Amino acid sequence: MRVYGVTGWKNTGKTTLTERLVAELVGQGLRISTVKHAHHATEIDHPGRDSHRHRQAGAGQVIVASPVRWALMTELRGAEEPALSDLLAHLDPCDLVLIEGYKTAPHPKIETHRKAAGRDLLALHNPTIRAIAADGPVDSALPRFDLDDVAGIARFIRAEVGL
């Protein structure tokens, strides 16, 4: 299964980029699924929520995971949060799974970065980050994309995973 992540600090554009990448890649004829990690108890599929946005963008399946529950709808009822690999096993075959969050998981990722967030780049200490999507210049030798360059980011991800 081909996977690629979108990671970054809170309020840096992860969900917007993921949503736009899903639409771009589905528009190219690919079957895309997503996994969205949340650090809090989350309710599923209300308009405006991340999982709803992923589905509206065209993802065939959406898994949302948090320490309290995960869905394709499963209540954990106090059990430990499942590993990403266990969640991926629940997905139907697809061309690519976009994973939002999971900063420290071993899959390759693009980092979203906004200067206004006032946070250092995760890429400085995370070798799984292969590129940065930012709203301005960044101090990194990694490939850098504008946050709005969805087509360029999609091409980069496709090349990275061999699609």
Rank of each mutant, 00 (worst) to 15 (best):
L91N: 06
C94A: 15
H40P: 11
L17R: 06
H39D: 07
G58S: 10
K109S: 04
T74H: 03
P93I: 06
S66I: 03
P106S: 13
P106W: 03
R77S: 05
K36W: 00
A117M: 12
A83H: 13
D86F: 02
P47F: 08
I63T: 01
R55C: 02
Q56Y: 05
H39E: 09
L122S: 11
P67C: 02
K36Q: 10
T42W: 09
A57G: 08
C94D: 08
H46D: 12
H46N: 06
D50F: 12
A38P: 07
M73P: 06
G118Q: 10
R53A: 01
V35H: 06
H39T: 08
A116S: 15
A71W: 00
S51Q: 03
D86R: 05
S51P: 11
C94Y: 00
T16C: 01
M73H: 09
E80T: 13
S51T: 15
I63D: 10
A38Y: 02
G78L: 05
E75T: 12
R114H: 03
G58Q: 03
A117C: 15
P67N: 05
D95H: 15
A65H: 07
A23I: 03
P82I: 08
S33Q: 12
P108S: 14
L25K: 10
L76N: 05
L122I: 15
E100L: 11
R55F: 03
A71P: 09
L87K: 08
A41R: 14
H52M: 13
L122T: 06
A116L: 15
L98G: 06
S33G: 07
A89F: 00
R31G: 04
E75C: 04
E75V: 13
C94S: 13
E43A: 05
Y102M: 11
R55T: 12
H52I: 04
A71E: 10
R49I: 09
I32S: 06
E81C: 10
L98A: 00
C94L: 08
K36G: 04
A117F: 11
S66H: 12
R55S: 10
P93N: 09
E111A: 07
L88M: 10
V62L: 11
H113A: 02
A71D: 10
Q56G: 11
E43M: 12
W70Y: 15
V68D: 05
T42Q: 09
I44E: 06
G101S: 06
D92Q: 14
G101N: 02
I44F: 04
L96A: 00
L91V: 13
I63E: 12
V97T: 07
E43I: 13
D95Y: 12
G58H: 07
G48N: 06
R53P: 05
K103I: 03
E19H: 00
D45C: 03
P47N: 04
L96K: 07
S51W: 01
R53L: 11
A117N: 00
W70P: 05
S85D: 06
I110A: 01
K115M: 02
S85Y: 08
L121P: 08
G29C: 00
A116D: 14
S51V: 10
L21R: 02
R69Q: 09
L84P: 05
L96P: 05
H39F: 01
H54Y: 14
E81R: 04
L88E: 02
R69N: 13
H37Q: 00
Q61S: 14
R31T: 10
A83L: 15
S66C: 03
S85A: 15
V35M: 03
T34S: 09
K36V: 05
L84N: 04
L21P: 13
I63F: 07
Q61L: 06
A83M: 14
G78S: 12
